[in-house]
Design a protein around this nucleic acid. Structure first.
Lengths: 196, 196
DNA sequence: GTCTATAATGTGATAGAC
DNA sequence: GTCTATCACATTATAGAC
């Protein structure tokens, strides 16, 4: 039976079990969400992309919202690992550096998906009610704002998050990933007044 | 620089005639687009927000895409004015400064709308095929990149555009507009290595 | 300009056969 | 797990009355 789960501070680990069939739905759905938005993606489009019928998709997830949450959880695993790496850093300055590097790396590797992920109202509506997401956001914010000064970090943090996801813009699609990684990291450091 | 401005080749002025009834549709639609996204907003929702029926909305615009384009044009008038003000500046440094100030001011005044405007895939799909928008984007980019160095401005320009629209994030909703304006401008200048 | 009525299609979702 | 078939409802869109 389910005894008291060893989750630390209410934040559940995003290590959720998904069957291979569910992962296929998640992969197809996430790509379509990035291209057409959550509201602009129908179950029929997901089924067509997988080469199956709507009912087959419904056998894996009971509702469309469950698919949205599952795609989010699937990505949150990577973000959670990045945050945990940063939290394990020896100093606060180093922790910020590690977090930034990993956020940039994560965004560059996903590009368009990351941009849609934070821009879509329908996606944000479900993520706002999703504890693992809000918990991760708080931990990231704490890492960024944890310094001696009495600066209000809410504005630069919000601008940083938005600026990093700019890697998904069509105008930058042709750029080499390594160049993009380095230069986005450089400008992100400048935004936060860090040395890179 | 201001003397050589007869360059309106193909770029139509966004002074498009809209009847009062059409403006009422545009206003209602744009608010809903910001909250639910374009794909997540139905004609029924627009009609309900206006207190009329669907057919009354259809009488003003033949298709949903026409409503999307009309809302864009309605906002582009303000952006166009900002670009023209910047282009009329006496120097390149001053032109950039004027453009930045007006972009920030415009974004703060609209907040959530601006964020949805550039984040929604459905909105971007119609704007990409819309010449007045791509023309304005090119003129803004030219103002930002117009300097002596051989720097590639595509990355910081994309990050800047995204960072400015961060003013629409829910976490910053409670902040005083004037504070938001000043601090976003400050960080935007830092991103571009300008003095503010 | 706004209404009622309706067409044609797409939507999320369910039931039951294989 | 996937399929066919179907449901109730919402969607874009049209036609014609007031």
């Amino acid at each position: 039976m389910a005894s008291t789960t060893p989750f630390r501070s209410g934040t559940r680990l995003a290590e959720i079990r998904h069957t291979p069939a569910q992962v296929r739905v998640i992969t197809a759905a996430f790509g379509l969400f990035a291209e057409y938005g959550v509201a602009g993606t129908s179950l029929q489009m997901i089924a067509d992309a997988m080469g199956v019928t709507k009912a087959a998709v419904y056998h894996q997830f009971k509702t469309k919202d469950e698919i949205v949450i599952a795609t989010a959880d699937h990505e949150l695993v990577t973000l959670e690992a990045a945050v945990e790496n940063a939290e394990a850093a020896p100093s606060r300055v180093e922790a910020r550096r590690v977090l930034l590097l990993q956020l940039v790396d994560f965004s560059v590797r996903n590009r368009a998906q990351v941009r849609a992920w934070q821009g879509d109202p329908a996606m944000m509506r479900v993520l706002a009610k999703h504890e693992p997401f809000s918990g991760l956001t708080k931990r990231m914010f704490a890492l960024l704002a944890d310094d001696d000064s009495d600066t209000d970090w809410s504005i630069p943090a919000a601008m940083l998050a938005a600026a990093i996801t700019a890697v998904g813009q069509p105008a930058l699609a042709a750029l080499d990933p390594e160049v993009l990684r380095q230069r986005v990291f450089h400008y992100a450091c400048r935004l936060l007044d860090l040395h890179d």
